[in-house]
Nucleic acid binder design. Structure first.
Lengths: 329, 329
DNA sequence: CTGTTAGCGCGTTCAG
DNA sequence: CTGAACGCGCTAACAG
């Protein structure tokens, strides 16, 4: 194994000098910097991440926390995109990542969680899918013992950033698109889980829209469940001109109900998952770029680790009309 | 941070003794073992995995390699299950895991890959989705520089195990189920990718079956592509009594084609993905327990790391008749 | 059976 | 601007 020592010898400098070059310290002459870099190339040297972590204590080791307990295809898809984006970006930025699922942290006290994370030399947490009921994790973030980046959760402090799209605007925009095409006077809105942070934001969006446009709005809680959305639509769909859903999965449920009742109503969704391509008719939805969101989250983490303060990052979204593949009937 | 030293002081022994207790070395009296364990409990001590890895060089750090380059919902689902199973199990066994996607290793020479893995102190590789065209990775496994566990790929040597179901039997069994129900004289078999290791095994299964039952068999290469399966079915479906597919995704494609042509033929799939619940009619398929497969893979890795030799592990599968949810038409 | 000691590979003072 | 020396937390001989 070629170590920093070998590089130092080859470049004719001290090991500490090599270390400084590696970590972009100031006060290194261009000349020695070049010599060191040449030696690194020649020896095909890669710094040992583990030794580096041990020595510096500020490892740049980041844990990706995923709330993957529910098993739905749609969820799988979204989390996979998040994960792929986060891991690839982390490697680009030289961060060392490990993946942790919420389920692994259940039944463990917050102190034990901290001990575990410390034992892994973890200094940063990127959290996907946090909800209001994850009290332990929220407390963990609050304590500011780790640098945190939260996706779709609105906690910000000196050590914590959050990344999400403008939920209210997105919900507003997607339904607006439908209004442009169809005559709509009343809307049935199927909302997400009460303990989800995005739920209230999206609700704001639809409420603002209906107020502004003078539309009648009925709100029912669908909990992001396809089944519930379907039941709700069966019960209330007929009396409304359109069904707006807080997720694509619920939009599927709504569509099923409409089909069953043999009536037509425009439906809008949220997320833009590929699964939609397998199941439905045309529909407007909010397309989130999950990989990009993950990228931004990692960048934000990188900044935090380098001393920046936490902030809210709003990423962009699109309103798309899904062009469905053909359907099996 | 409470370290091994603190524990030693508290227990009134030397640090090395603590280390030995931690790592289950022989030749430690029950008495001191107890003292040390008490001290560990009292101090809430957790060994620093990073320091341990650095010192021992035999880190128990394992990389999960995933061939997640294609973006299909079905694939997402399968890989997510693999990942979840592997990571949870690894934590149980005290293995430290990092996740790597094939795409991160593209355009990198094999030597550089090795250097990278070494720099991460990785000693074991669990590989999901290896295919014959991943020449670099195959060479990597061949060199036996790392302990490897391959899922769905038949490489075995002293340092390499593989885990998979009995592909041939599964393919045989699932189609047999259909034969029990329907009058079938000729089968259109849509196979997987030529460079996939499972493809030829599954092919064997269907060939054996047809030979034994005296059925006419037409084989077309579907490359695991829904679209191709659909085209193939459009072209050849009508002249056969059933369509057997080497993946659920292709089964979806086949079903679409049948619907379009407005004819009925029984279809069989492979994998048992949840996505199927969203798209099709009833169908027999092979249900693989991806999480269990991942579990077994990690266990196998654990054994390899502890000196066992590589072997082939066959996991179980079921033949299921999917009860589809209702469909949107 | 237990303690002493020397590193693992790197980061970080602090003189020079 | 550079280098010697120490230490991160732990493991692995080697003594005792």
């Amino acid at each position: 194994m070629v170590s920093i020592k070998d590089v130092a010898k080859r470049a004719g400098v001290a090991t500490s000098t090599v270390s400084k070059v590696l970590n972009n310290y100031p006060n290194i002459s261009e000349n020695t910097k070049r010599k060191v870099n040449d030696a690194i190339k020649e020896l095909n040297f890669v710094p040992n991440a583990v030794a580096s972590a041990l020595s510096s204590k500020q490892s740049g080791r980041v844990a990706i926390l995923m709330n993957q307990s529910v098993q739905t295809t749609a969820i799988d898809e979204i989390y996979m995109q998040y994960l792929l984006g986060a891991i690839v970006k982390s490697k680009e930025l030289g961060l060392d990542v490990i993946t942790i699922f919420f389920s692994m942290l259940e039944d463990i006290s917050i102190d034990e969680i901290i001990v575990y994370l410390r034992s892994q030399n973890i200094t940063g947490l990127i959290v996907f899918g946090l909800s209001k009921s994850d009290t332990n994790l929220i407390e963990l973030v609050r304590r500011e013992e780790f640098k945190c980046v939260l996706i779709d959760a609105p906690l910000v402090n000196k050590n914590t950033s959050c990344v999400w799209i403008n939920q209210a605007k997105a919900q507003y925009d997607v339904v607006s698109e439908v209004l442009n095409k169809d005559e709509v006077k009343s809307i049935l809105y199927i909302s997400g889980k009460e303990n989800g942070f995005v739920t209230s934001r999206r609700l704001e969006g639809i409420e603002t829209l209906c107020r502004r446009m003078g539309l009648k709005l009925t709100i029912k809680q669908g909990d992001f469940s396809e089944k519930k959305a379907r039941e709700i639509t069966m019960k209330y769909g007929k009396n409304h001109d359109m069904i707006a859903c807080a997720s694509d999965l619920m939009a599927i449920g709504a569509m099923k109900a409409l089909t069953e009742m043999d009536i037509f109503r425009p439906v809008s969704g949220f997320d833009g998952i590929a699964l939609m391509g397998y199941v439905g008719k045309q529909m407007f939805t909010v397309k989130q770029d999950f990989r990009n969101i993950a990228d931004r989250a990692v960048e934000e983490m990188d900044k935090l680790l380098h001393g920046a303060e936490g902030s809210e990052v709003i990423t962009t979204h699109e309103i798309v009309r899904l062009q469905y593949l053909d359907i099996i009937c």
